[in-house]
Design a binder for these strands. Structure first.
Lengths: 210, 210
DNA sequence: CCTGAAATATTAACACTGTTAAGTATATTT
DNA sequence: AAATATACTTAACAGTGTTAATATTTCAGG
């Protein structure tokens, strides 16, 4: 059936167009400015056509979110060559913070907004490959730190939460301007990095401190 | 001038009415559902009247935010009787997390949403009494921990950021449902507390561990 | 080639949102 | 009593996501 195949391709084409237009709006004006009507304008279709290719706006935002995770994943390719797991954890934290500060819009969608999670909850399988992969990496590093007795033993999930919590807390408080009363705006990033360093040094229980 | 005084009182009265209506909507339906028209409906005035008493919606949200900080402050009254500063820090963290999970809507406004900060930035003085007070408390406890050599020495602002970051990260990831892929939903709170405990034990550098 | 059905796209509308300009009614001052 | 100042409302602007009904295009079978 060559015809249905071509039709399938055309459908994918338009889906791609919609996502590209959304992405453009997202990058240029921020995710709050992404609207169905604006997307429709760019792709030169009527707004309702979009609903033939996406269930609702959340589905589009979820796809943008996935793009963000792919971007994020690329950043972590510099980790494997670091032998000490705590140094690796430190680097991963710096990657995370760097990503959040460089792409606050993506970060917002990936870790702050409800929309993508609402979509995920509605999906039948509920699997989230990109999100899971980053978490697995974090968990494995923490496990290695524990088996090598570099950090205090404890429940891996709990410690993963605490570590993720810290970096996410730093990024999200920074991009939501909650640190302005604590330090000068131009010193926020520096102070954040110092905070992470302090915590890493504190966590280091090994004899040969790194 | 008895007349202008009475008028002043009436103005305050209506302002109070607007805030009470906003609060009702906020508590009942969540902050996203607070709309000028809905507030107007409750107080039985036209929507535009609200603009005679508040500059815009952000100003109303800022006031609701302040209410949240007052609620939060009350919670921390149980800290002064704890002598060990690290135990006090631990308790403060638990208070923070407890508040966030019990009042996610308030938490959202206080620490996640942009609206109140946009308003704060527009204010001439830019002072934020309630927000500052909680920060000062955190800073002084961390300072005490350092001078008593219970935690590793370091820049107080950096460490404050890291500690605040961790608890904020935990709360905000939890209320935005980012932990569902890490642990079972019913175990999230427990795991969070374990994570905080682990971090406190790790931070404890004193000889007589608590 | 033509007809009927299926797929695709559009128009119009609903029910909202924050916000503003212009007009009206009431109260106070001159 | 007329003029002014205050308080409030109506109507409108410019947008939002989303749906029902309608129109157009595409394509298989007769």
């Amino acid at each position: 059936m060559g015809i249905t195949e071509r039709k399938e391709k055309q459908k994918v084409e338009i889906k791609k167009k919609i996502l590209e237009a959304s992405m453009k709006l997202f990058i240029d004006e921020g995710f709050e400015k992404v609207s169905i009507r604006k997307i429709a304008n760019i792709i030169e279709y009527s707004p309702t056509t979009i609903y033939l290719y996406f269930k609702d706006k959340n589905e589009i935002l979820f796809e943008l979110c996935e793009e963000g995770f792919i971007l994020f994943e690329k950043l972590n390719s510099n980790l494997s060559k670091i032998s000490n797991p705590l140094s690796r954890l430190h680097k991963m934290g710096e990657n995370y913070v760097g990503f959040g500060l460089q792409h606050p819009e993506y970060y917002d969608l990936m870790f702050i907004q409800n929309a993508p999670m609402d979509r995920l909850a509605q999906m039948n399988d509920g699997k989230w490959i990109h999100g899971d992969r980053a978490l697995d990496l974090l968990r494995s590093i923490i496990k290695e730190c524990m088996t090598k007795k570099i950090i205090k033993k404890g429940d891996i999930n709990s410690v993963s939460m605490a570590v993720w919590g810290m970096v996410h807390g730093l990024v999200s408080l920074a991009i939501r301007k909650r640190f302005t009363k604590l330090v000068d705006p131009e010193k926020v990033v520096e102070t954040m990095h110092q905070g992470i360093s302090w915590m890493m040094k504190t966590m280091d229980q090994s004899k040969n401190k790194i």
